[in-house]
Computed example of a mutant assay.
Amino acid sequence: MTLEFRVPHDVDTDASPAPSAPAADRPRHGLRALLDRWAVRRAAARDRRIVEHLRELDDLQRLLTTAREVVERGWTQHAWFAYLDEHGRVRKASSAAAMDVQGRPLVAACLVGAVVSAAGGPQAVHSQPVQRALDLVWHALARDEGQPVAWCPAPDLRMARVRDLTSWNDAPTRTAAEVASLLLTAERVAVHESERVQARRVAASAT
């Protein structure tokens, strides 16, 4: 007698096991999951810092524009400010006497004084916006405007740079137009730096 085996038509004898999910799609656990969460938080923190830096650069550009307008209204040498005293006479104030200008009509300012004035006046002289704006102005004077800016120099180096700017401002042949032009270059330095930071942000988001 011959035994005959029949295979039902609804059974796929060639069926293969269902493919498993790719490794990248599988949920991760333990240390791997912890590292993934840490990487996400680190990327988010980095992006927040970049956004803050871009906002700061926009603010610095506006500050430098205001400083340029101060110089265009009135420029002085061998003093930070020229102002009107209570008798309507023009007085000059050095960096040491800068607070004498507080509340007085400003007649003129030197390069550094214009930046201080644009940031809010003598009380802002040690503020970060003033220090960072002066970093940009010094870069405009001493470096190619398209090069990356060296931020946060050591205090003694920063003071030396302020002296550089003061000496440049007080040169006998210097003109107000040249000072305004340097501030305009510093504005462009801020723009270049913003573009560089934005490019880093785009590159980081693509990884």
Rank of each mutant, 00 (worst) to 15 (best):
H78D: 15
S117M: 11
P22N: 08
G103K: 09
T65M: 09
P129Q: 07
V149A: 04
L34Y: 02
N169R: 04
S205L: 15
D25E: 15
E195I: 05
R48I: 04
R188W: 10
A150V: 14
R143Y: 05
L35T: 09
D58E: 13
C110H: 02
Q128S: 13
L157P: 00
R161Q: 15
A43I: 04
P153E: 02
D156P: 00
P153R: 07
A180G: 13
A39C: 04
K92A: 11
A177L: 13
R174V: 01
V115S: 01
L134G: 00
L54G: 01
D156L: 10
E52K: 06
T185L: 12
V40N: 05
A204C: 03
R188A: 09
A108S: 14
P148M: 07
Q131C: 05
R161K: 13
G74A: 09
D100G: 00
V189S: 03
K92R: 14
M1R: 05
L64T: 03
S194L: 03
R41M: 13
A79H: 03
G121D: 06
D144C: 04
S16A: 13
S194K: 08
V70I: 14
E72C: 06
F5D: 11
T175A: 08
R143F: 04
R49M: 10
S205V: 10
A119I: 04
R132M: 08
L57A: 02
V112A: 05
S194T: 09
G30I: 06
R143L: 04
S20W: 01
W38N: 12
L157R: 14
E4S: 09
T185R: 15
V197P: 00
A171P: 00
P8Q: 14
G103I: 10
Q198D: 14
V40T: 13
A33F: 03
W151K: 08
A119P: 01
R161E: 12
N169G: 03
S94G: 09
Q123H: 12
A150P: 01
A204Y: 02
W75S: 02
R49Q: 14
H192A: 08
